[in-house]
Design a protein around this nucleic acid. Sequence first.
DNA 1: TAGTGGTCTAGACCACAGC
DNA 2: CTGTGGTCTAGACCACTAT
Lengths: 258, 258
Amino acid sequence: MENGDMVDRRSGVPAFRQVAADLRDKISAGDYAPGDRLPSERELVETYGVSRPTIRDAVNVLRTEGIVTAEHGRGVFVRPPSSIRRLSRSRLSKAARDRNQGAFLADAAAGGFMPSTSVKIRFEQADERVASLLAISAGDEVTVRDRLMRADGLVVQLAVSRLPRKFTRDTTIEQVDTGKGGAYARLEEAGHAIATFAEYVGARMPTPEEASALQLAEGTPAITVTRVAYGSDGIPLEINDMVLPADKYELSYEWVAD
Amino acid sequence: MENGDMVDRRSGVPAFRQVAADLRDKISAGDYAPGDRLPSERELVETYGVSRPTIRDAVNVLRTEGIVTAEHGRGVFVRPPSSIRRLSRSRLSKAARDRNQGAFLADAAAGGFMPSTSVKIRFEQADERVASLLAISAGDEVTVRDRLMRADGLVVQLAVSRLPRKFTRDTTIEQVDTGKGGAYARLEEAGHAIATFAEYVGARMPTPEEASALQLAEGTPAITVTRVAYGSDGIPLEINDMVLPADKYELSYEWVAD
DNA sequence: TAGTGGTCTAGACCACAGC
DNA sequence: CTGTGGTCTAGACCACTAT
């Protein structure tokens, strides 16, 4: 900032935005490196010549942008870029599925972290969206497997899997432990081998529940993935709604041209 | 909220979070429907028995969650769910490429909107990341096509495409108008047909520049897509960094199992 | 104990929208 | 003109961290 770091009162730009922009510039210029503590709010009050609420507004801009985090009693710190784990989708190979219990554990094996999951089973009636994706009627019964995946103890993924109940009756899919090969193996035994997958990827800000479950820092979006598994006859067998922390994951897809 | 909508001072939960939670609940319960105006901040002051800055803190929580937007002089409104356009990746078919100038125009044709793009050409030296993705040396010259895509006048996508300059010299790829079939057609004419694609999908909060270019409302993340196009010999020919508004797009991928 | 961020107040004035 | 959100002040007290 030019004039001894004071804000320009005549520029028309709100003071808190000027301060935010100045701090942002200093961070990207390396004046404050990742992990560094910013000057305290009271120091910034002196530096910029504005009141503390104004400084807090400025810092909040950077917090919601995800470039700093505040720690109560300690200070405000420049967020180090978090290491991104690349999840290769399009690779739910049968071999990998046979070895263990599904995509997440396959990813774990590849990523070298200690996985654990908790599962809750419930049954519900398909709403509009679920019915449409599963090609059943709204109100039809679906089996719901609500999962919480941990890597080295940290929750890293929420996944809710839904299958038409007509495909899961009298199978271990309706139990917590689906057995070797997971739910897909049980479906195959029942004559419903998976033939194709579709995934729909989006992003949004997390709900408060998701934010606390995934321990998301402020300013961290969630990646949403809806995977639909189809049988060889094109019938949808399962939809899986996943929520991932956007600061930890990147999805990768590969395909051949034409 | 229970006690005549006043906040509970003894609960330990900050007043602004109680107000935010109450408003959030009322919105999801339908008391305030999409498009509805919330009570004015001064009315909420009376309702909850807190000061106006506290009300503003509460409303800001909802704004950064993307569930309301404030309009100066008019009020705070419940954000209607925006219509999501589904972009089918894995479908950059040669036929579609031949018909026009690339993936965006193909999407436009499918989506039924009026597309327009502006392009800036520049040349730069590959940084670490670009060099690694393009399998060249850091510092090698790359041709950069910086694009801004509009649909019906609105900016809906930023895309920066980089190719090793050794592949673009003496081609129209180094000009604004690449000609029929786009850059991929020119590459193919030069003996570099595209064989495979890879895409890496992530999400993050937009930079201020991206937010204003894409006219993103507060609390709207950006989806980032990095597409790498490979030749038949496995050599990377192009990387394309795209930024999309997460409230308008969903990406779809399909593949066959095994 | 001292320093940090977290919360909150009771105002004030400004800029914009709409009648 | 009135009502709306946007900005800002000058404090106060609390809760947490570190020494």
